[in-house]
């Protein structure tokens, strides 16, 4: 069995006294893809932010490849894609990627930036300001930003929401390659069909609890609502 990439042990998150996450525990071995499903407000985003290291768990421990993501060095190995694209409108595509490449301490940020621009089909517009980009282009750039530093663990918050066809294709192919290379993916999603195709495991978060966690089965693919029906609240 391969090593544990994402380890979440007894994580609680409180808003005041209210627990938004209650005793979440799971592990994702290297090379697997976990799809976190659940209603809006169930706590998926909160959990991903804790895993990414920029929100503090009220109780419990998270480890990414053995180190706490609260430490800067562990974050070097995480690629995070949140609700926003986290790309600066006033900078060009290349400048954006170079900026993040430098922040992640890449030896050759320029090379990495150009590689990912090519990969996401943005090579032609690399010097254009992001402000002038179409929505699909911005989303592809966001994918490039999240993968730029070759992260071993990818944390994606609703990556398929509001993507156009081309961006979905790019994202799917990028994620497939990443998984094939042995990287680990944890994503939250509403788009069950797209996500389940990639996922090896499924977790259902319901009212802050991990209501179900197991391998993705063929019946989930044929009926994406199956997990909800079986383990979710009515």
């Amino acid at each position: 069995m391969s090593a544990v990439a994402v380890d979440c042990a007894g994580v609680w998150k409180f808003y005041g006294d209210f627990p938004a996450l209650r005793d979440i525990s799971f592990q994702v071995p290297e090379g697997r893809c976990l799809a976190l499903i659940g209603r809006n407000g169930a706590g998926k985003t909160t959990l991903l932010r804790i895993l990414a290291g920029f929100s503090r768990a009220g109780r419990g421990q998270t480890k990414i490849l053995g180190t706490s993501p609260r430490e800067a060095d562990a974050r070097r190995r995480i690629g995070f894609l949140g609700h926003g694209i986290a790309i600066y409108d006033e900078l060009s595509a290349l400048e954006n990627l170079r900026l993040f490449g430098k922040l992640y301490g890449l030896p050759d940020p320029d090379h990495a930036a150009r590689h990912w621009l090519e990969r996401t089909g943005l090579e032609r517009v690399r010097d254009g300001l992001v402000r002038e980009f179409s929505r699909g282009m911005r989303q592809r750039l966001a994918v490039a930003r999240a993968l730029l530093h070759n992260p071993s663990v990818l944390l994606l918050d609703e990556p398929f929401t509001a993507l156009d066809d081309r961006a979905i294709t790019v994202l799917q192919s990028v994620l497939r390659d990443a998984l094939a290379e042995g990287r680990t993916v944890v994503m939250s999603t509403h788009q069950l069909r797209e996500a389940l195709e990639l996922a090896t495991d499924v977790g259902l978060i319901s009212r802050g609890r991990l209501a179900f966690h197991g391998e993705r089965t063929p019946e989930m693919l044929s009926d994406p609502g199956w997990v909800y029906a079986r383990y979710g609240e009515a």
Binding site: A52, G53, F54, A72, D73, A74, R75, R76, I78, F80, G82, G84, A86, I87, F100, L103, Y104, G105, R145
Partner: peptide
């Protein structure tokens, strides 16, 4: 979020 996720 992009800055916070970075190792900075």
């Amino acid at each position: 979020d992009g800055l916070l996720a970075a190792p900075v």
